[in-house]
Design a protein around this nucleic acid. Sequence first.
DNA 1: TTTAATCTGTTCATTAATAAACAAAAGTGG
DNA 2: CCACTTTTGTTTATTAATGAACAGATTAAA
Lengths: 183, 183
Amino acid sequence: MDKRIKKSKRAIEEALISLMAENDFIDITINSIAERADVNRGTIYLHYEDKFDLLEQCIEGKIQKLLNFCLPEGSGSYPSKSSLLRTFNYLEEHSFTFHILLTNKGVPTFRKKILNVMKAGMKEQLELNGINQNINKEILIQFLPSATISVIEWWIIESMPYSPEDITEQLWILLEQNHFVPK
Amino acid sequence: MDKRIKKSKRAIEEALISLMAENDFIDITINSIAERADVNRGTIYLHYEDKFDLLEQCIEGKIQKLLNFCLPEGSGSYPSKSSLLRTFNYLEEHSFTFHILLTNKGVPTFRKKILNVMKAGMKEQLELNGINQNINKEILIQFLPSATISVIEWWIIESMPYSPEDITEQLWILLEQNHFVPK
DNA sequence: TTTAATCTGTTCATTAATAAACAAAAGTGG
DNA sequence: CCACTTTTGTTTATTAATGAACAGATTAAA
């Protein structure tokens, strides 16, 4: 992709996040985004329908980067302790952004999207695993992703009261106890 | 000026400074500058003749910003304790850049340029002042700027061993003793 | 309610940045 | 020394960003 597009989109999305640290999304204007991003207002409309589309693309990008950075390992088998640790390290490094996306009013989208991604991934994983004969997968797939997300959400919002290593260890134990990964 | 030009030139000059923190100027290539600045190589030639012209413009810009930021006060009367303090605060804030420009091999230009600027300013000041009847101004104008620059240079290179307030106080006393400012 | 100010979304001509290609110069290693 | 790679400086056509202007929608103040 053209360098200019990358730079403009990054500047615009960074400006949005930055403004969301100060105001609720609904109160943020395209004008203020353009000003903070130091781009012409028209440039924003070149890449986004409106500010809602901007938020949408921004969130989508954050989720994609999270997945691309945290999932790929060896290749294939998704959940491992080390990939979980990598994820928490990434979350910690970008906690400023994730904190905003999780707490800014009028943006319930973010949590939902992550939840959906996690549901899909966990479902796939459960079907691959031969285990859990005596557990209702239907229910487990409602239970586990939601619980996991909540742990992550709590950890971020509470400013990461445990180290990535510790939180990984704890969550891993929970996943084991719930037959998501083989003991 | 067009936003794009500002951004490109800033990125390019920041890249140069950044690379000069790692290598001698003579070893830095246009390619590496373009890469670090994240601009097309051709963009550099759009604004600079070659890397020497780039260094020239970069240095000139730093000096201009230093002057514009540090001199203007009230208006007119140049040297005052507060303007001196403001200058040292600015130097401290940008010590990373000034340290590089003062120490990187093959860039004696920077010190010389500042010296010339200071000579001109001090000369003007001396001629405005009615004092110093019994002091040879010709000699004083060789003596003072050079001495002042050396203090500044030492202060930056030694990683600012005194606070801006302290160094201002000390230098001010020296200037007083040398009849540059009225006691 | 009317006025004024701000924000939105779109259009347009102009300008800057881009990728790609090129020949020539300068280094590099065998 | 000669092949080989890198760097330089320049050129091209293409594309993105810019500033400016505009009408209509919102919002705030008088």
